[in-house]
């Protein structure tokens, strides 16, 4: 009896283990059925920018994102969801785009750096660095000038973002040291880390601390003086821009993404608006324009 149990257990466990290696399901053809809308959480810079640029707002400029939309606070969850769900649609920063999902053209314009630069791809937002001008420390000022210099901007371009045209020569300041605390947008943080690495190789006595807290939190920390520089992936609101000066670090596109098996390659901005506000809930309505 006991032997029987042991043998049975072991067999089933082996079977499970083998299944876990093999089980990949196959991708289908065109998307059909109910659309799974995936959005970011309220307060996310990516969402704020997307909602504003794709006009998912009512007449009072209030966010009217479909309340049946899945919400996630993580780009990884967004990508994984769209990758694994044939009926999903979502959006990510162009810098985080991966080959596992497909970016849609909007009104016939592809989401590429050139199109964003030329202004033909509309869903693009600035990456801003904001700070209090009068209390900025020497180290932070020097770092900022590095970010805005040709060297800093070259890194930005290399990482797939669109650089700022007004780059100047970087002239390091003397007699600076200490710590620069940067906080804010999780979209800006990866590229900021790369710039900071480069900067640290030039200035050994300056440490740079980067907190990924989100755009709004970064801006409010900059206002409260908790951090030296705030990172924001959206434009500052009116009451914020009174208190802080902000510099445009780069431009970033937001790509509307669908599953790779989805036959759709182009979508009109009107359809995007309707899908994300919940007017269209089925793919069949999305395809005939």
């Amino acid at each position: 009896m006991k032997k029987f149990i042991s043998v049975l257990t072991v067999t089933v466990l082996m079977a499970v283990l083998f299944c876990s290696c093999g089980g990949k399901y196959t991708a289908g053809s065109t998307a059909r059925g109910e659309i799974t809308v995936v959005s970011r959480e309220e307060g996310s810079g990516t969402r704020d920018a997307f909602v504003e640029l794709a006009q998912i707002v009512d007449e009072d400029e209030n966010d009217i994102t479909y309340d049946g939309a899945e919400i996630t606070n993580s780009t990884s969850v967004m990508l994984t969801t769209v990758k694994g769900n044939k009926r999903a649609i979502g959006y990510v920063s162009l810098g985080s785009m991966s080959d596992d999902v497909k970016a849609l053209s909007i009104d016939g314009t592809e989401a590429t750096a050139e199109n964003i630069k030329s202004g033909s791809y509309k869903i693009a937002r600035p990456f801003n660095v904001c700070y209090k001008e009068d209390t900025l420390s020497g180290a932070a000022e020097d770092f900022l000038s590095f970010v805005m210099s040709e060297e800093g901007q070259a890194i930005i371009e290399k990482e797939g973002y669109i650089k700022n045209d007004t780059a100047a020569e970087y002239e390091p300041m003397d007699n600076i040291g200490g710590k620069v605390v940067i906080a804010g947008s999780t979209s800006v943080a990866p590229v900021m880390e790369i710039i900071a690495d480069e900067y640290k190789s030039k200035h050994k006595d300056i440490t740079i601390e980067i907190q990924q807290t989100g755009s709004s939190a970064g801006i409010s920390s900059a206002i409260e003086g908790v951090c030296d520089l705030g990172m924001s992936s959206r434009d500052l609101k009116e009451d914020e821009s009174v208190k802080l000066k902000s510099d445009k670090l780069a431009m970033d596109g937001i790509a509307v993404i669908v599953n790779k098996s989805n036959a759709l390659t182009d979508i009109s901005s009107e359809t995007v608006r309707k899908i994300f506000s919940g007017e269209i809930t089925d793919w069949s309505q999305a395809e005939d324009k």
Binding site: T75, S76, L79, P190
Partner: peptide, 24 residues
Amino acid sequence: GSVFNSARTLAVHMYCLLSEGLYT
């Protein structure tokens, strides 16, 4: 450098890696 500095532990590190989707 000191106890008043911020630091991420391994589990938080994993959370951060996931949140930008670049490092699955």
